[in-house]
Design a protein around this nucleic acid. Structure first.
Length: 553
RNA sequence: GGCCCCAUGGUCAAUCGGUUAAGACGGAACCCUCUCAAGGUUCAAUGACAGGUUCGACUCCUGUUGGGGUCACCA
């Protein structure tokens, strides 16, 4: 009769570390009462998902607000799906949002005493725990091929019982150790499964930090804990890593709720105290009347990179996400006239239970608010950083004449209700391109949208007078009075009131007269404050433009 | 299908059994205004359904319906 010890030894002869050794190697953290240790543990399978940013923001804040530790762990056990280099993007993008781990995996090397923080580098740790589990009879080698498992599942489906590797369906669960050894020695491939003592008819209860008490069926399936490639599955890695990294609160997506009994089952088997769980709702999207999770394939806004490329201030996205996380945050921002997340009393308990629909309008609203209130220098720095990375044309203009672009960004900014023209930096260039001469040329070449009923003679005459008489360097009302006066000479009403009283007596209103100038200088009939535009352009450029328009008519 | 989670306006949602059921985004109207973006004022719009419990239910319980999730050698 082969003993469990002998079996364990045969399976993992190279492992000499014990659980006890590991407990010593990763001592309990010395932290103040109530401090939470949280983590963000993504797989390097591509890009940073908006839902992941949401989750990591919550983890980060939970740790920070409690005086705890937030760490980053790379879950790279799925070698097939791993995309090389994506861990760097993950960390870089998070850093854009100010979410920088206190410890964990970094491309330049681990930081912290609880590593390695990359699962593929922890194989020996998992194996040490598994070896112990085998000795205790709580794990065993399983020799099923994928075909065997398929056959089991099919049989279960046909007889309409629950699919899964459990109880009587766990084929190799009760193999004798002699038989196991024989197969191993014969070179039969194996995986390691957890030996569950759970009873499907009983319930497992746990308290979720967001949802409160959750009751689920006990786990009774013997899940795979070590794959044939020698790496652990998520279930096992989570239990081992979060135990030895001394995580106190697991923040993860709500899709993990149904597998929590598996994790609790293993914590129990190992005699370890389970951490708290906070299952975070997913961000959803409406698709043909149905709600679904934001999808990488279908929704550009599922990728954090989208917001970066569009030039949303990172702070705006964070503020939006916080408004979903704690709905009282919005009122708090209004009451406190602040968007400072670090001052807001964030509460994990207040997270709503239902996944919110992603609301682009609301994001835009926050973003406009935040950009509008941003001091000019800061906005300029952000715009420049954005343009250099994502907006070639704008970047070139900034390089050419930074002060000019800065003065454009400053239009109607320095007042009580600043302009709220753009929600993202990608919107800027199309709005301001008329400021640049070659862009103006092409606008001019495309034809200016003067009102069709106006005679070219009238436009010419008005613009000629404007050219001659319009003052520069004055305040806005002086300037505007001058415009009105010029307009008056050409039959425009001197005030909107006059015009309204007797429209037929005039060529048009004051607005119409200002529109002539606007169209001539800007190329469209909409723009920010015309006076400020003209002051930025200056007398020479304005005169040149007026000459060109007059010549073209 | 089994199990689990969830359910207040179009969206985000407040209410710890008693309110004219907040507020914000979005929408509409008006005002302001050289256009636009804003800003101001006002308006429209919500408790899925059915049973209980209670003097009283959006709130508690049960069921129904609906939505979401999950049942891998993926996380």
């Amino acid at each position: 009769m082969v003993s469990n010890e002998e079996l364990a030894e045969l399976l993992f002869p190279e492992i000499t570390t014990t659980i006890e050794d590991l407990e010593k190697r990763f001592p309990l953290r010395q932290l103040p009462e109530g401090a939470q240790v949280t983590r963000f543990a993504p797989s390097p399978t591509g890009f940073l998902h908006t839902g992941s940013l949401f989750t990591s923001m919550i983890s980060y804040l939970t740790a920070k607000k409690s005086g705890g530790v937030y760490f980053f762990r790379l879950e790279d056990t799925d070698t097939k799906r791993t995309i090389a280099g994506s861990e760097r993007d993950l960390i870089d993008q998070l850093a854009h949002f100010g979410i920088v781990a206190d410890e964990g995996f970094f491309p330049e090397g681990d930081k912290g005493n609880y590593g390695p923080y990359k699962q593929s580098a922890r194989a020996d740790i998992y194996k040490a725990v598994i070896k112990e589990l085998i000795k205790r009879g709580r794990a065993y080698p399983d020799f099923c091929t994928p075909e065997d498992l398929d056959a089991i599942r099919k049989a279960q489906e046909e007889s309409k019982v629950l699919p899964g590797y459990y109880g009587a369906y766990a084929r190799d669960r009760n193999l004798s150790n002699d038989e196991r050894v024989a197969r191993i020695k014969a070179g039969t491939p194996w995986v390691i499964r957890f030996y569950s003592n759970g009873d499907h008819d009983r319930k497992t209860k746990f308290t979720d930090a967001i949802r409160g008490e959750i009751e689920l069926q006990d786990n009774d399936t013997d899940v795979v804990i070590l794959k044939s490639d020698g790496l652990p599955t998520y279930h096992f890695a989570h239990v081992v890593d979060d135990h030895f990294m001394r995580t106190t609160m697991i923040t993860r997506g709500e899709e993990w709720i149904p597998s929590t009994p598996i994790h609790l089952d293993m914590f129990r088997a190992l005699g370890w105290k389970a951490p708290k769980y906070a299952h975070i709702p997913s961000i959803m999207k409406l698709d043909h009347g149905n709600k679904r999770k934001l999808s990488k394939r279908k929704d550009p806004e599922a990728a954090v990179s989208y917001f970066l490329e569009q030039g949303y201030p990172t702070h705006a996205l964070l503020v939006y996400l916080m408004s979903i996380a704690n709905s009282n945050f919005e009122e708090w921002t209004i009451a406190n006239k602040s968007f400072d997340l670090s001052k807001f009393p964030f509460s994990i308990k207040k997270i709503a239970l239902e996944g919110a629909l992603f609301d682009q309008d609301k994001l835009n609203y926050f973003s406009k608010e935040i950009i509008a209130k941003m001091p000019l220098e800061e906005e300029f720095a952000q715009v420049k950083a954005y343009a250099d990375a994502h907006d070639e044309k704008l970047s070139a203009k900034i390089a050419e004449n930074p002060e000019y672009v800065k003065s454009i960004l400053n239009i109607e900014k320095d007042r009580k209700n600043p302009r709220k023209d753009y929600a993202k930096y990608a919107d800027i260039y199309p709005l301001i391109r008329f400021f640049f001469d070659e862009e103006y040329e092409s606008i001019l070449a495309a034809g200016l949208p003067f009102k069709a009923e106006l005679s070219h003679d009238l436009i010419k005459a008005f613009l000629n007078d404007t050219k001659a008489e319009m003052p520069f360097g004055t305040d806005e009302s002086t300037w505007f009075n001058a415009i009105k006066e010029i307009g008056g000479k050409h039959g425009y009403a001197l005030s909107n009131k006059d015009y309204k009283e007797n429209p037929s007596a005039y060529v048009g209103s004051v607005s119409d007269c200002a529109e002539l100038l606007r169209v001539a200088i800007v190329g469209t009939n909409q723009s920010p404050n015309l006076h400020e535009i003209l002051e930025i352009l200056g007398k020479d450029k304005t005169t040149q433009r007026l000459d060109k328009v007059i010549a073209s008519l």
